[in-house]
Amino acid sequence: MSHSLPSFAGYGLGLRREHYRDFLETEVPVDFVEVISENYMVDGGQPRHILRQLRERHPVILHGVSMSIGSADGLKDAYLRRLRTLADEIQPLYVSDHVSWSRFAHFNSHDLLPLPYTEETLEVVCRNIHHAQEALGRPMLFENPSSYVSFAASAMSEAEFLAEMTRRTGCGLLLDINNVFVSAHNHGWDAEAYLRDIPPQCVRQIHLAGHTEGDGMLIDSHDQPVPGGVWSLYAKAIASFGQVATMIERDDNIPPLAELLDELAMARGFGRHLQEAA
């Protein structure tokens, strides 16, 4: 691999179609923009054109949802080639995906499904990460998932799994604070202990998002503002990891851009507070 993972302590937003015009026609005060890779892994047309225009204005992070890094039968080279073509053109700040699986054999659920945290899973995931990083010619970031079930076979905690995964592969972490909050609630974990088990030097990016509650479970719906509990956990996270690329992730019930910028301003405020306290 010819690239390394840069450090970048800026504040950004996930680009959604509802805000294309804002981003292309006005000066949006963000330090980077994250896009869903698959939306732009197309042959041509307006999506690629918009991304090229956007790239002229901002650093871009390619965030994927379909690599399926936990697939026991490996990764699809055709997918990796498409992603490589996009990454070579866009020269992203980071390329990321999730610690989950969505595809096995010919079936693709298009959902981020949970993994048991076992040595076998670790070997599969690390083998796949090596494959992906070689194919892309760059190290990647992987995001902790939110989960609603746990496996009897799990032999280590999620944080221990992520730490060992980064150690074996050299990948970085995209830490989704909302996912930590959601999974900790659903499984009765200690969210702060989770953060303590994450190797600080591996965290390159943070996602902040909202969730909904139903039937005693929290669902990672990304359709609400970032709630207070997630902000509190974020403050503890950056106290441990320092300021890293931080963004608001909203996938549904998309509000006007100004509302997301207000949330981003809150994140910046936490960062400033951390600097002043140092």
Partner: peptide, 17 residues
Amino acid sequence: LLGLHATRGLAAYQNNY
């Protein structure tokens, strides 16, 4: 058959899918 320890949230995956 899934080897789940806690299954309360399993419906969330069926619903999402």
